[in-house]
Design a protein around this nucleic acid. Structure first.
Lengths: 124, 124
DNA sequence: CGCTTAGTTCGATAATATTGAACTATAGAA
DNA sequence: TTCTATAGTTCAATATTATCGAACTAAGCG
């Protein structure tokens, strides 16, 4: 009998990756945090580790969606590693297509998180 | 009698501008196009000119919303110039807060628009 | 004033995102 | 092999957000 064949994951060709797509994917603070974290996690990271490391409370279905969005925008490659799905940033490819873009975004993000936005007048 | 006082436009303090906010604002191709165009339009640009110059067909209410989103994300300053509202990019301030970010995004956008993404297998 | 140009606001509809529950995939134990 | 636990995905319902036309507000001009 044939292999059940794990459902193929959608990874766009690097030439199909768009700036708008990248910005949309990273416009969510959670996803930006994921990518930022992944860049310094050479062995990749899965959903569970993500929720732990970023100290976020979110449904696993939500985490799954975030990864799907990042993957479909061309930011990540995901592959099965035993029971879990491990993802990494397509850093080299992305930098070849849009030199400096991702690095610039992550740099700004880190600057921001190291010193959060000032307190609002009316914090709602 | 007091001035009718034009409704004040919301312009966030530069320290309240966030990376996610910027990326979200620019994640829409129309808005990215507007900002890109504005950067080379020193005298500013209004909604009508935007629709013309970018050759876009959109309701003026939609254009108004796009400008509102860009303004509230901290990307633009808008001011009345007689009958119309003229907007410009807060380039210097933004570059001081997030060095290179906007320039990097616009550079990538221009690269992309100068040579569009390759044709899809199934252009739907 | 009254007319024209330029935007904004509003109400309805369409497109996205979030979540818990149910389902699929893989590894390891019995 | 069958049973269990772990890790994600898919689904259906709900909540946000975006788009559009229509109605309304602001500013300049005759």
């Amino acid at each position: 009998m044939l292999e059940p064949m794990a459902r193929p994951l959608a990874h766009p060709h690097i030439d199909d990756v768009t700036v708008s797509g990248i910005l949309h994917a990273l416009s969510d603070p959670v996803r930006l945090g994921i990518v930022s974290k992944l860049l310094t996690s050479p062995s990749g990271m899965n959903c569970t580790q993500t929720t732990q490391k970023l100290k976020l409370a979110m449904a696993k279905s939500t985490c799954s969606q975030h990864y799907r969005i990042l993957r479909e925008a061309g930011l990540l490659v995901s592959e099965r590693k035993g029971v879990d799905l491990s993802s990494r940033v397509r850093a080299a490819e992305l930098d070849a297509r849009f030199p400096g873009l991702l690095a610039s975004i992550v740099k700004s993000y880190k600057k921001e998180t190291s010193r959060p936005a000032r307190a609002r007048a009316a914090p709602k």
